Amino acid sequence: KWTITVQGEEAIKWAIKVAEARNLDYTVHIDGDQAHITIE
Rank of each mutant, 00 (worst) to 15 (best):
E9R: 09
W2I: 11
A11G: 08
D31R: 07
I30L: 10
V6T: 01
W14D: 11
E9N: 09
T38V: 12
K1G: 10
T38C: 10
T3I: 12
I4T: 02
A21W: 10
G8N: 03
E20I: 13
D33M: 08
T3Q: 09
H29G: 03
A15W: 15
T3W: 10
D25W: 12
I16H: 01
A15Q: 03
W2F: 10
V28E: 01
H29N: 08
H36K: 12
L24W: 15
E10V: 09
G8D: 03
H36G: 03
G32C: 11
D33Y: 06
G8L: 05
K1E: 04
W2L: 08
V28A: 03
E40Q: 13
E9W: 13
A15D: 01
H29D: 08
E40D: 11
V28H: 01
K1D: 06
D25N: 13
E9A: 12
V6N: 00
E10N: 10
E40H: 15
I16N: 01
T27N: 05
Y26G: 01
I39M: 07
E40R: 14
K1F: 07
N23W: 07
Y26Q: 00
L24P: 02
K1V: 08
I39K: 00
I12R: 03
Y26L: 03
E40S: 14
E10R: 10
E9T: 12
N23Q: 10
Q34W: 15
Q7H: 12
L24T: 03
Q7R: 11
A35D: 01
A15E: 03
D31G: 03
D33P: 06
E9F: 11
T38Q: 06
H29T: 14
V28F: 04
I4F: 11
A35F: 11
A11N: 13
I16L: 07
D25T: 14
V28G: 00
T27L: 05
D33G: 07
V28L: 12
N23P: 05
I4W: 10
A35Y: 12
G32M: 05
E10D: 11
T38E: 05
I12P: 03
W14K: 13
Q7F: 14
V18D: 05
D33E: 07
K13W: 08
E40Y: 15
G8V: 09
K17T: 10
G32A: 06
Y26A: 02
T38I: 12
R22K: 12
D25F: 13
V6S: 01
H36P: 00
V28Q: 02
E40K: 13
D25S: 14
I37T: 00
N23M: 09
I39P: 00
E40G: 11
A11V: 06
I12N: 01
D33F: 07
D31M: 12
I30Y: 14
Q34D: 06
D31F: 13
R22Y: 15
G32I: 06
T5G: 02
V6F: 05
A11M: 13
Y26N: 00
V6K: 00
A19F: 13
T38S: 06
I39R: 01
A15M: 11
A35I: 10
I30H: 06
T27I: 08
H29A: 09
H36F: 13
L24V: 05
I39G: 02
A21R: 06
N23H: 12
I16W: 02
A15C: 13
D25K: 15
A11Q: 09
T5E: 03
I12L: 13
E10Y: 08
G8M: 05
A19Y: 04
I4M: 06
D33C: 10
T3D: 03
I39D: 00
D33V: 07
W14V: 12
A21Y: 10
W2E: 03
L24N: 03
D25A: 14
I4G: 01
K13V: 06
E20K: 11
G8F: 12
I37G: 00
G32D: 05
T3L: 10
H36C: 13
G32N: 05
E40P: 04
A19Q: 02
N23L: 08
K13T: 04
G8W: 10
I39Q: 01
E9P: 10
W2Y: 10
T27Y: 09
E40M: 14
A21H: 08
A19W: 03
V6C: 12
A19E: 01
K1W: 12
E9Y: 10
W2T: 05
E40N: 14
I37F: 12
E20R: 09
I12E: 02
V6L: 08
T38D: 03
H36D: 04
V6H: 00
I37Q: 00
K1N: 10
D31A: 07
W14S: 11
A11K: 11
R22W: 15
I12Q: 02
D31Q: 09
D33L: 07
A11C: 15
W2K: 04
D31N: 09
K17I: 10
D25G: 09
T5N: 04
V18P: 00
V18Q: 12
A21I: 08
I30F: 13
I16S: 02
G32W: 08
E9D: 10
Y26I: 11
K13L: 09
D33T: 09
D25P: 14
Q7K: 12
I4R: 02
Q34V: 15
Q34N: 09
E20P: 01
A35T: 07
K1Q: 10
I16V: 07
Q34L: 14
L24I: 06
H36N: 05
T27A: 06
I37K: 00
W2P: 03
E10T: 08
E40L: 15
Q7D: 05
G8Q: 01
Q34K: 14
H29Q: 12
T5S: 08
I39H: 01
G32H: 05
D31Y: 11
H36V: 14
L24F: 09
I37A: 02
I16P: 02
V18K: 04
V6Q: 01
I39Y: 10
W14T: 11
K1A: 10
T3F: 10
K17E: 11
A21C: 14
N23F: 08
T38H: 08
E40F: 15
V18T: 07
A21N: 06
T5C: 13
Q7I: 13
D33I: 09
H29R: 13
W2S: 03
E40V: 14
A35E: 01
T3G: 04
W14F: 09
V18E: 13
K1Y: 10
H29L: 13
I4K: 01
T38P: 00
E10P: 06
L24C: 14
D25H: 15
W2R: 05
I30M: 12
I39S: 01
T5K: 04
T27S: 09
G8Y: 05
E20A: 08
T27R: 07
G8K: 01
I30E: 03
K17H: 10
H36M: 12
G8T: 04
D25I: 15
A15G: 02
D31I: 13
A19N: 01
W14N: 14
I4Y: 08
V6G: 01
I39V: 07
Q7W: 15
T3V: 14
H36E: 09
G8R: 02
A19I: 15
A11L: 12
I37V: 05
A21E: 12
H29S: 11
A15N: 00
A15K: 01
K17F: 10
W14Y: 09
G8H: 02
Q7M: 12
V6P: 00
I30K: 06
I37Y: 00
I4E: 02
I39F: 14
R22C: 15
V28I: 14
I16T: 04
T27G: 02
W14M: 13
V18Y: 15
H29I: 15
I4Q: 02
D25Y: 12
A19K: 02
T3P: 02
T5H: 09
K17D: 07
E9M: 12
H29P: 01
V6Y: 03
K17L: 11
T27F: 06
N23C: 15
E9V: 11
I37W: 00
E20H: 06
I4D: 01
K17G: 11
A21G: 06
K13Y: 10
E10S: 08
A21P: 00
A21D: 09
W2D: 02
K1R: 13
A11Y: 08
T5D: 04
T5A: 04
T3R: 07
I37L: 06
Y26D: 00
H29K: 11
E20G: 05
I16M: 05
E10H: 06
A35N: 02
K17W: 12
N23T: 03
V18N: 05
I12D: 01
G8A: 03
L24Y: 09
